[in-house]
């Protein structure tokens, strides 16, 4: 996407112009979360990196930033899982297979795959954090031999809130990854762990020097999870998070996503813990300085 356009080309095109796309499949996981499989016009590949996001356009309603939740190793389509919270996401939930929408992006910086390759991977997903992480998990599983030990720790409020149910079951069954999950509140059928996701970390076997911990979840979760990871002596530059911010343009201009001097839509949403600390005081997640 980062091709340099000449000025003349710029006059003709616009970074604000979305590309036409079509919904080819949907899957409603919960009352609030729905997956959309999307095909760009001409079946072009999005060419994203796990962790990046797109701006979804519904003309007349507007735009909203949504993380891509499929891997770039899956060709011809990409997936978005959308929580119904605002104007655009509510309108999007009404869409079904065959509906047309607009896509801009991908934007931002994804997970540092090159640095992560060859290392152990610890994935910590809280609530909706599993959405961008699904992209990374698919990516790693498609190239499993490129990575060391892979552990997935998954936490959500109740068993009903669990997304990607069948996939999660498949991850559990795989011999080449360790999987553990927990719920804040159990229901009668729940046989697994009950408690916060932080409780899973002390028991995890980690070789800190060669481990990249990738943490995505609500702001409050970072605070506590990062403390646990630091206790395990994982270096700050190997703790990776993804931040949620308001994003309008995706082009490092409109200002809404800024943390101190950093435009999250360009320099993020993925940051290392070391980078977070640099943004101390402007960044809720960064207040986890210990």
């Amino acid at each position: 996407m980062k091709t340099e356009l000449s000025y003349q080309e710029l006059l003709k095109t616009s970074p604000y112009k979305p590309v036409k796309a079509k919904i080819v499949k949907t899957n409603k996981y919960t009352e609030f979360e729905k997956l959309f499989r999307i095909e760009l016009d001409g079946k072009k590949d999005l060419e994203h990196v796990p962790g990046q996001f797109v701006q979804v356009s519904l003309f007349g309603v507007g735009e909203a930033p949504i993380s891509v939740c499929s891997s770039p190793t899956e060709k011809g389509y990409f997936d978005l899982t959308v929580r119904r919270v605002g104007g655009l996401t509510t309108a999007m939930h009404k869409l079904e297979t065959g509906s047309v929408l607009g896509i801009r992006g991908p934007f931002g910086k994804g997970f540092p795959l090159d640095a992560m390759r060859g290392n152990d991977i610890l994935i910590v997903a809280g609530g909706l954090g599993i959405v961008p992480l699904r992209s990374l998990i698919h990516y790693i599983l498609d190239q499993r031999k490129d990575f060391g030990d892979v552990q997935i720790l998954l936490g959500c409020k109740t068993p009903k809130d669990m997304l990607f149910g069948e996939e999660v079951e498949a991850w559990q069954k795989r011999a080449d990854i360790k999987f553990n999950c927990t719920v804040d509140r159990a229901d009668p059928d729940w046989k697994g762990n009950v408690g916060l996701i932080t409780s899973l970390i002390p028991g995890a076997s980690i070789e800190p020097k060669k481990t990249y911990a990738v943490v995505v979840g609500p702001p409050i979760m970072y605070k506590f999870v990062i403390v646990e990871l630091l206790k395990k002596e994982i270096p700050g530059h190997q703790i990776i998070v993804s931040l949620e911010r308001k994003m309008k343009c995706g082009l490092g201009k409109c200002g809404h996503c800024q943390i101190r001097g950093v435009y999250v839509c360009q320099s993020g949403p993925v940051f290392t813990y070391d980078e977070l600390r640099q943004m101390e005081g402007e960044c809720h997640e960064g207040e986890c300085h210990v």
């Binding site: 949620e244 308001k246 809404h256 996503c257």
Partner: peptide, 18 residues
Amino acid sequence: SYCQMDDFAKVATGEDFR
């Protein structure tokens, strides 16, 4: 739009980052 506005840094879930 201005950074002095109330919902300038507020996301759809209601979290206000400034």
